[in-house]
Design a protein around this nucleic acid. Structure first.
Length: 205
DNA sequence: ATTTAGATCCTCT
DNA sequence: GAGGATCTAAATG
């Protein structure tokens, strides 16, 4: 089994972490031991108090956002639009409430189980969006606020050689607020990967 | 290709 | 009470 990312990794500056997470493997080990995993191909950075689009922007923890104010390397999974969950990795030290949203995965292990919610979809469309990847890996409330460096069911591990990853960047997706921050280039992807979420990055064909 | 509507419920003001 | 870091299907040009 590949090496789990440790506290050194999760101590990276938030934007750097968003870039370096591309090409790593997100693993959810089910209670029966089955591994559901995918290669991270797309992320977005949310940079706390500087970022009006970030859930923690107010500077005060709420029941939902409390994890972000704690130490880095924890999961932050929240419920949205009455249907979906989104998974983030907490970045920033204690009191620095930043996070990286995982936006898309290339399915690797447990693909049959990942297909259950969408029997007709091709593999590269099973986890190509933040809500879809949580369905595919069966992530929800129970997986919120787990320590990814030290948990036997949810973690991120080494996968491909970082030199194989070709990064592309663009503005973040789905933000409705009227502010420059909505256009900041904090979305990162693996250029050309078929499992990227729509919409396309600006510099793609 | 682009737009719209609907599902649906938690969170915070 | 409003709105949201989404997704799908259906309608339209």
């Amino acid at each position: 089994m590949a090496r789990k990312l440790n506290k050194d990794f999760y101590s990276l500056e938030t934007i750097t972490m968003a870039e370096q997470l591309i090409g790593k493997r997100l693993v959810h080990r089910l209670p029966d031991g089955t591994r559901l995993s995918g290669r991270i191909v797309e992320t977005e950075a949310y940079i706390g108090l500087e970022d009006p689009c970030c859930h923690s922007f107010s500077g005060r923890p709420t029941p939902r956002t409390a994890v972000m104010f704690g130490s880095s390397g924890f999961s932050y999974i929240y419920f949205i639009y009455g249907f979906y969950f989104c998974m983030n990795v907490v970045a920033g030290n204690e009191g620095v409430p930043e996070a990286v949203l995982i936006r898309a995965l290339e399915p690797v292990e447990g693909v049959d189980l990942m297909r259950a919610p969408r029997p007709l979809a091709p593999t590269h469309q099973l986890a190509n969006g933040p809500g879809k990847l949580c369905q595919a890996l069966r992530l929800g409330r129970e997986q919120n606020a787990l320590d990814l460096t030290n948990n036997s069911h949810l973690w991120i591990e080494e996968d491909v050689d970082q030199t194989d990853v070709v990064l592309i960047e663009g503005p973040r997706i789905g933000l409705s607020i009227q502010h420059d921050a909505a256009h900041w280039p904090l979305r990162f992807g693996w250029r050309g990967n078929p499992s990227l979420s729509p919409p396309k990055f600006p510099q793609e064909p």
